[in-house]
Simulated assay, not measured.
Amino acid sequence: MLLSPRAERNWESLCSVLEDVLEHQSHRELFALELGSGTGQHVIRFAQKMPFVTWQPSDIKEESLESIKAYVAATKVKTVLQPVQLDASQPWEQWPGVSPGSCDAIVAINLLQYSAFKTAQGVFLGAAQILKQNGLLITYGVYAINGTITPSCNEDLDAELRKMNPEWGLPDIDVLRQLAYANGMCLERMIEMEDYYKCLIFRKL
């Protein structure tokens, strides 16, 4: 069972955002896909707080999948499915556990900065297909805005990520907005979070 101190710190604020954007649909059963679930700490907390949502966790790494399984077993949450191995840069037809128009929400926490641009492209292409009409894609992370990264701590993070992998780095909100538009979605809200992080709420039109 993996432990992320950052996930322990930020799950409550993320949960508040999710509750805010999904609460008006709490009268019905929702289905959500989490891309890049990592340790599994987030999805377990979300399930405990929002019992009206069934969660499909996913990750590309085997160790993360094992950790998610361990959290599901330890907490005995009923609304988290067994995790699936999913590479968001691959065509959506290859994504297990989902089908066209099956998702009310897709959540991606700290995924886009730790992956190549083709992953961001894959996320939006996939979201366009597997989200229901008016479904939401919710991304969380640190971003560039119109090609500018501020403050200096975010510049340092971007440099650190690019040192780890030249294809990684802070995605630009304007580029993501264009990706969304090209896939029949719009950036509906940008929510300021702690430590210069942001939640972007995209809606399928």
Rank of each mutant, 00 (worst) to 15 (best):
L2G: 03
L2W: 15
S4V: 10
P5W: 11
P5L: 09
P5N: 04
E8I: 08
C15V: 06
V17F: 07
D20C: 09
V21I: 15
L22R: 05
S26A: 14
S26C: 10
S37F: 10
G38S: 11
R45Q: 15
M50H: 05
T54G: 03
Q56H: 06
Q56T: 03
P57G: 00
D59P: 05
D59I: 05
I60M: 08
I60F: 12
E62P: 08
E66N: 11
E66D: 11
S67H: 06
I68T: 02
A73Y: 10
T75I: 06
T75C: 04
V80G: 00
L81D: 05
V84G: 00
Q85A: 12
L86N: 00
L86A: 00
D87C: 03
Q90S: 12
P96H: 04
S99T: 14
S102N: 07
C103Q: 15
A105T: 07
A108N: 10
A108M: 11
I109N: 10
N110H: 09
N110L: 09
L112F: 06
Q113V: 06
Y114P: 08
S115K: 10
A116F: 08
F117A: 14
F117P: 10
A120G: 07
A120K: 12
Q121F: 08
G122H: 06
L125T: 12
Q129A: 12
I130T: 03
K132T: 02
N134C: 07
N134F: 11
G135Q: 09
L136P: 05
T139R: 04
V142P: 14
Y143I: 06
A144S: 15
A144F: 11
N146Q: 13
G147T: 03
T148L: 13
N154D: 07
L157V: 13
L161C: 01
R162F: 04
W168Q: 01
P171N: 04
P171F: 07
D174S: 15
L179M: 14
L179W: 09
N183G: 02
E192L: 11
M193I: 06
E194K: 10
E194G: 06
D195E: 14
Y196T: 08
Y197F: 09
K198M: 09
K198Q: 13
L200I: 03
